[in-house]
Computed example of a mutant assay.
Amino acid sequence: MDFSQLIKGFDVVWQNLDYLAWGNYPDGPISGIALTLLMSLAAIVLATGLGIIAGIGLVVLTSWPRRILVTILAFLQAIPIIMLIFWSYFLVPVLFQIDVPAIFTVIMALALIGAAYIAYAVFAGMIAITDEQWQAAYSLGLKRQQVIVYIILPQAIRMMMPSFINQWISLIKDSSLAYIVGVAEFTFLATQVNNRVIVNPTQIFLFVIAVYFVICWSLNFAASRFIKQYQLS
C-alpha cells in the first residue's frame, strides 16, 4: 500500500465520523468518543475524590482500620481492571439480585482502581511535608483536621499533581476495556465500523490512536498549564 492509497483509505473514517463521535445520538443513547469522554471524566472525578480521602486515611488511621484500608488498596492495585469490570457486572447481580448498568460498572471499576493509586500518591505527598510545618500549625491552635485540610493537603496535592495526571491519562486509556460488557464507547464503535466495511482497518485504528493521543495530550497540556499558573500565584 503506497501513501496515496493510505490517505484515500481514510474515506471510511470520514464517512462514519458522526457515528464514531457520538453513535446514534439523539435517536439513540450517546456513545463513541462522547461516551468515552463522559465515562473518563466521571471516573477521574470519583477516583480523585476517593483517592484523596483514602490517602488521608493512610496518614491518620492506626491499628486495624488502617490495616483494612491497606488491604483494600492492595487488592485494588493487584486486580486487573478488566477482571474487576467483568466480575462486577456479572457477579454483583447474582449476589445481590440487583441490575447493574454496564456504564456504571465501568466507571466504578475505573474509579476504584484509580483511587488506589492516587491514595498512595496523596499519602507520599503528605508524609513528605516536614514535621516543623505540622508543629507550627498546631502551635497556632489549629485542630488536626484543619491542619490537614488547610495546610498539609494543598501542599501534598501540588507536589503529587504529576502523578495525578499520569493516573488520569491511564483511566482514559483503560476506558476502552468497557467493551467486555458491551458498552458502546469509542473503540467498540470503531471495531463495529471495521467489521461492517471489512476494508481499511489500518486507517480506522490509526484514527483511534490519533483520537486517544489528542485527548490525553490535551489533558496533560491543560493540567500542566494549570500547575504552572498555580505555582506562580
Rank of each mutant, 00 (worst) to 15 (best):
I81P: 00
Q77K: 14
G49H: 00
S4Q: 08
V60G: 01
S40F: 03
L38W: 01
V45Y: 02
A124H: 10
V211H: 02
I53N: 06
W64A: 09
F226G: 12
D11T: 13
E185I: 06
Y117T: 08
I118L: 12
A109F: 03
A116F: 00
V12Y: 05
A42E: 11
Y150V: 06
Q146R: 04
T202F: 14
Y19F: 13
V149Q: 10
V94E: 15
T202W: 06
A223E: 00
P101M: 04
I204P: 06
A119L: 08
R158A: 15
A54I: 02
I82N: 04
Y179Q: 04
T36W: 02
N220W: 02
G32Y: 03
S31D: 07
S31T: 04
L177I: 10
L50W: 00
V181R: 09
L219F: 07
S233W: 02
K173Q: 11
S163Y: 03
Q133R: 10
L41E: 05
L73F: 03
R196C: 12
Q77E: 10
T202R: 04
L219M: 14
V147L: 05
I198R: 08
L58H: 04
A136P: 02
N24E: 14
F188G: 13
D2A: 03
A124R: 13
A34D: 05
N200L: 08
A190S: 11
D131G: 03
L6H: 03
Q167V: 06
D11K: 12
S63T: 13
N16W: 00
G32W: 04
W64C: 02
Q15C: 01
D27H: 00
F164N: 07
R67Y: 09
Y230N: 13
L38Y: 00
A21L: 15
F213C: 14
F104E: 06
I209L: 15
A124V: 04
S175C: 09
